[in-house]
Design a protein around this nucleic acid. Structure first.
Lengths: 160, 160
DNA sequence: GTCATTGCAAAGTCTTTGCAGGTGA
DNA sequence: TCACCTGCAAAGACTTTGCAATGAC
């Protein structure tokens, strides 16, 4: 099936190191996961169910957690929603989230990361991971709608 | 009971504006909330139950949500945990979270905030709120323990 | 053949909702 | 008075766990 990837090797290595086995489900989940920037467990479940209708949601949860342990994925909480980020391919990135249409834009900014390190250093900390989310929306039209999705924004408070 | 505060006035104003009523429970929750930097619904419930054993957890959830609507509180998700932050007194702040003992340190950094605005501007966004969390731990001792709480850190991966 | 893994269903956790009785303005 | 509130219990959303059958090595 899928040609060997660096990521598959990472998974295999983690599996053998921990006496675990490479199953069809695990391989499918990894393959699908690598095509995405981020997924929720539910989304992953629905994607997989198209090809393999008998897949269980519990397996998806278990495998996504496994991918986090290998370092290929990283669990992220946006508001109330839990997403699994593909860090393997893109490296670390932060998020800009549209509060009207829930679209997520990824970005990186070295200057911010440096300032974060500085804050940590001042507090005697070593940063292991971090999370930065900006919530907002595209400049609104004079008519009061979101430029992206058209929803009415005129009665939303701005609070930073 | 509690002498009048600016925050109580904000609450009263919001209530009357929306045809809501000031109840004993709402006043108690506000009073307790103002003493804290942040609480979970469960913590708030236990604190209140000491004085008023018949308080309902649902009331706590409803009232904390109400405080968010007034702008006195702000809901924050740390990992899997939901906290309600007291923004009224301290203004916006970000968080430095110890991954070994879960202690939360609050900080502010204007330079980071400016860079955030810049990122948003480049993407045509207006920031409505943001969230920055640094996860890490105090410099570890040569023996491998967390300086803060003594837990063993030597086998934790550093991934940024 | 052995032991990890799977799918299913049941159980957990956290939060919200429906409702009947209580209460503030 | 009358609509809003409360506490309780039930329902929901999301995630984890127990278990018997299945499958990888």
């Amino acid at each position: 099936m899928a040609k060997p990837t660096k990521e598959l090797d990472i998974l295999k290595h983690h599996l053998s190191k921990n006496n675990l086995k490479l199953t069809r489900q695990r391989e499918n989940i990894l393959t699908t996961f690598l095509k995405m920037e981020h997924v929720t467990a539910e989304q992953m479940y629905r994607l997989l169910a198209k090809k393999d209708p008998h897949i269980g949601l519990a397996t998806v949860y278990r495998t996504l957690k496994l991918l986090c342990e290998t370092g290929l994925a990283q669990e992220q909480h946006f508001g109330t929603q839990t997403q699994f980020d593909n860090v393997a391919h893109k490296g670390h990135h932060d998020h800009l989230i549209c509060t009207t249409c829930d679209k997520i834009i990824e970005f990186e900014n070295c200057q911010i990361e440096e300032l974060q390190e500085e804050v940590a250093r001042k507090n005697g900390f070593t940063i292991r991971t971090h999370k930065l989310e900006l919530y907002g929306n595209p400049v609104q039209l004079s008519s009061g709608e979101c430029k992206n999705c058209g929803k009415d924004l005129s009665n939303q408070d701005v609070r930073r």
